[in-house]
Amino acid sequence: MSTLLDVENLWVRFPTRNGVFDAVRGISFTLGRERLGIVGESGSGKSMTGRSILRLIRAPGVVEADHISLEGQDLLQLSEKEMREVRGKRISMVMQDPKFSLNPVMTIGDQIMEAYRLHSKASKSEAYAKSIEMLEAVSIRDPERVMRAYPHEMSGGMGQRIMIAMMLIPNPEILIADEPTSALDVSVQRQVLDIMDKLVRERGMGLIFISHDLNLVADFCDRVLIMYAGRVVEVCEADKLHEAKHPYTRGLLNSLPRLDAPRDHLEVLQRDPAWSEAPSVSGRS
């Protein structure tokens, strides 16, 4: 399998009053044309990992790594200007809540077309046609009407599909999705995931899917990294997630209430300090 992204020994550090806080501590992984899940609880460093690939960590946070290579090119060596070329055009990101990612005072059509024309020298009419085509691809009925609408007129599921459409128009090689469906209702969640899945497959993209939801990741991804306290504690095939070995992964799975297995008390995760001390497991394939 060809490797799109290769991350080696990634650290994200934040200086605080009580010393340096390491949000991500020396993780390594590769991404091919596959769906890679990153799961963990809040504070595990999963979102920081996604953001650090695009160098979106705000100062005073610092990203350090031996390399973050996109098809052999080290992103850490690029200037901020070159990095802007990479963002959106080669690597796109979908965030959790579409409400905060769309500009409230621009019509959806203008925003999609702007996103497209930023990266290609297409004419206005070409951009319009392309935008309609993309909205159709994310199963939006009546795309002409949506193009004229403002973000507040859209439901959460629609907004998230529009975001995905917008991110996929420049045809990036990698899509990073940070909890793309956790603000959505379960039935809508399914639709959005199906659309994302179809597009990623058709275009042969690499997908990094960041989520706190183990079941969702097990269903949706090919390979999963489980993060704890800034490190990767376990890597496994997504369909074998329920056979995971690490006590942390097991603990997370067992703490979920289940309709088919009623219990008086849920299992409570006993955290072992050794988990955060153990070296990171490599996510290379």
Partner: peptide, 14 residues
């Protein structure tokens, strides 16, 4: 809340 914390809170409520 995170799932592991959810389990603790649900147990408390039970």
């Amino acid at each position: 809340l995170d799932v592991s914390v959810q389990a603790e809170i649900l147990n408390l409520l039970v």
